[in-house]
Amino acid sequence: MPARQARTALDWTDRVLELQIGPIAHGGHCVARHEGRVVFVRHALPGERVRAVVTEDGGGSFCRAEAIGVLDAHPGRVEPPCPWARAGGCGGCDLQHATPATQRALKTEVVREQLRRLAGLDSDVTVTELPGGALGWRSRVRLAVDAEGRPGLRAHRSHDVLPIADCPIAPAGLLEPVLADGFPPGTEFEVARDGDGRRHVDGRPGPVVARAAGREWQLSPGVFWQVHPALADVLAETVAEWATAPRGGTAWDLYGGVGLFAAVLADQVGREGRVTVVESSRRAVEDGRAALADLPQIGWRVGKVERLLGGLGARPDVVVADPPRKGLGRTMVDALAAAAPGRVIHIACDPAALARDVALFGERGYRLAELRAFDAFPMTHHVECIAALTRL
């Protein structure tokens, strides 16, 4: 049978399957098998028996499905607090159908499995809860506008816009006044609540106030800050604990944003030391310079880390790296290992990317000394990890 005909024969789209659900997988779905094929199922939990409708099928070894009925439920299953957290619904939340404790247990399995599979490491790391609970934590929400000018959220793996009345993971009262307004069809905009409790729509009115590590930043529109209100402080405290930069030493803060970790490192190296921040966003650097103007030991470089790393000068005692979701990758790990810092602190929002980077560092003489994982994105499959790697 020609390949094209084989793909057509395997197209299960819209077919309803009865499935025995297997383990959680990285990406917010569970794994099941049916007639020799893998089925990635959203809105299911390990050990359940469900009915699921196939939503995508490219004709290969796997397809994607959504649970539409539960025949045997996991003990951690609950009714989702949002009506859009269902088949055909919003793409933002993957785990509203599980208790917060069950969500953290599933995320723990994912982090450990990624480290075992990609880095060959057995870890006892546990995903821990952050203050504030599982709802109302998302301080920044990006909304899309449909063809009729109604703001909403994107459907799962789609550009379709779902008009909403509210979002339970956003702070109470943040979205309702905004959702009542009209917007130009086809546009997008961001709604945020800052450290003073003020609402900002696409950065208006004025700068967004952010606080962490005992300091305050005035953020320009679009400048990155952690979306969970407790995470910036938790990460800064962990960096302070693990960095142990010597007085008068040298530290690099790569992908450093507005200098949250640079502020911590500057306190450790003192005025006789040196901290270099490398960040590609000029606005973030300007905001960071303004907020940390009292720390002359911090130097700022605007540009891509990949281009600037070779010109940063003296060997660093410690490097803090908070790269994009894809991680550092082989080229950057090679470059950092060649710089020979005694310690690398790696922040990651994707456990698979972190595990790949840990494996690459292992090939270059670094070992994983510390690892913590935080449930910084409740109701979703995402998890924030921070790792310390030391030279052997």
Rank of each mutant, 00 (worst) to 15 (best):
Y255N: 03
G248I: 06
R204P: 00
G133I: 09
E237P: 07
R42W: 15
D166N: 09
V110S: 09
C93K: 03
H381V: 06
F224Q: 05
H200Q: 13
E18C: 13
V319C: 06
G47R: 02
R367G: 15
H228M: 03
E79C: 12
R247K: 12
A67K: 02
Q114V: 11
V302D: 04
G273P: 01
A155F: 11
M379Y: 02
V141L: 09
L130M: 11
L254E: 05
L135Y: 13
A266M: 03
L219H: 05
P207A: 15
E113L: 05
F377H: 04
V201R: 06
E113R: 15
L354A: 10
R138M: 10
D294Q: 09
E148V: 00
P296V: 04
V31A: 13
E35K: 13
R33D: 01
G327C: 10
I386P: 04
A284C: 11
A134F: 03
E216W: 00
L368N: 03
G303D: 06
P341L: 05
V201F: 08
A25C: 14
T390I: 12
A32F: 04
V344C: 01
G342F: 01
C93Q: 08
H74S: 13
D202H: 06
E384H: 09
P163D: 02
E79N: 12
V258F: 01
A348K: 02
I386V: 15
P378V: 03
C349Q: 09
E190F: 00
A210C: 05
G222L: 12
F40Y: 14
A192F: 00
L328Q: 05
A340S: 14
A101M: 09
V305D: 03
T276W: 07
A335R: 14
C30P: 03
I164T: 11
L106V: 02
K326Y: 00
W225Q: 09
F361M: 07
W84A: 11
R4N: 04
P185V: 04
D334F: 01
M1W: 01
G92N: 07
R199F: 03
G89D: 10
V264Q: 05
R142D: 12
V141H: 05
D202A: 13
A348T: 11
A266Y: 02
L179H: 10
V191F: 08
